[in-house]
């Protein structure tokens, strides 16, 4: 009885191990194949879409290469200005956001009210209205505003707007700091102000960095709105030469492409930054 069963059981076990190894290998191979197939089709579809638009426009003889040749450089010279506007607006917006967040976390009713008033006002009105208000309406209140460079007005308007949205981001970031950090700071004898500056804010900024990246990418696109103020960034230049030469299609196509590429590039940069931050966190 025993003799009879033993070889049978061993045989079954052996067959199973071999098969499972084979199955694992086969599954992995098929998964790799699926992945490659997915990526190929993905890239091909993108290629077809881009190619179709380009070839379609060229074939229909709607694109004027001479115009592009002559003005492309002028339009592209708006890129550094677009980046300058976006970067400085985000930088100023961070200041607004920190102040706003501290206000929203304050237990003093006046400060809390000021902060919520700011957030509510900004979130309740369109960005374009805010920009035009600062540009057109404020000089009516005080002439001095007319003398401020439009670049500064534009940056202020964008920062004022983004600062309100980022106030909530920073507030969440500050609230995410573990209670133990506050207790450790207090136990060392730190004052509340020192705790905020030395312990909470440095950690909160790290927490909100990925969110700031998203805001920056959104800002690159919204910075186009300051073209309304005559800031000579990407869209302003494209629109200017486009309308002057009755070649809006080419000009706006270039502008759109540049915004698109910029956002893709910064998204990739942000991915890498986030990965690196995640890695340094993992060294726990």
């Amino acid at each position: 009885m025993h003799d009879h069963q033993m070889p049978g059981a061993a045989a079954v076990g052996q067959v199973r191990t071999e098969t499972s190894a084979e199955i694992i290998e086969a599954v992995a191979r098929s998964r790799r194949r699926d992945q490659t197939r997915f990526r190929t089709i993905f890239a091909a579809t993108w290629g077809v879409l881009l190619g179709a638009i380009l070839i379609g426009l060229l074939a229909a003889n709607k694109i004027d290469p001479v115009f592009l040749g002559r003005w492309q450089e002028f339009i592209l010279a708006g890129i550094p200005i677009t980046i300058l506007v976006s970067a400085s607006s985000i930088a100023v917006a961070i200041v607004f956001a920190v102040i706003g967040a501290l206000g929203r976390l304050s237990d003093r009713p006046v400060i809390y009210a000021l902060a919520s008033f700011y957030v509510s006002l900004v979130r309740g009105t369109p960005l374009i209205v805010q920009i035009l208000f600062i540009y057109l309406a404020l000089p009516q209140i005080w002439d001095g505003f007319a003398g401020i460079p439009t670049l500064v007005l534009g940056v202020f308007a964008l920062a004022f707007n983004y600062g309100a949205y980022m106030t909530e981001v920073f507030r969440a970031g500050i609230q995410a700091i573990p209670r133990g950090q506050l207790e450790a700071a207090a136990a060392l004898g730190m004052t509340d102000r020192m705790t905020m500056r030395r312990v909470i804010l440095p950690q909160a900024i790290r927490i909100v960095t990925p969110a700031i990246g998203n805001e920056f990418i959104a800002m690159i696109k919204d910075s186009a709105l300051v073209s309304l103020l005559g800031v000579q960034e990407l869209l302003w230049r494209a629109q200017r030469v486009g309308t002057q030469n009755f070649r809006a299609l080419e000009a706006l196509l270039v502008a759109a492409l540049v915004y698109w590429v910029l956002t893709i590039v910064f998204s990739l940069l942000q991915d890498r930054l986030e990965k690196r931050m995640a890695e340094s966190d993992r060294r726990v």
């Binding site: 573990p178 133990g180 950090q181 207790e183 450790a184 136990a187 060392l188 004898g189 730190m190 020192m194 030395r198 312990v199 440095p202 950690q203 790290r206």
Partner: peptide, 24 residues
């Protein structure tokens, strides 16, 4: 503390001199 509560954004030395330099 039970949970140490070191400041994660400072080095060991930074944690140790924070109180003496900033507070004292």
């Amino acid at each position: 503390f039970q949970e140490f509560n070191l400041f994660p954004h400072m080095t060991v030395l930074g944690n140790l001199i924070e109180g003496p330099t900033r507070v004292k």
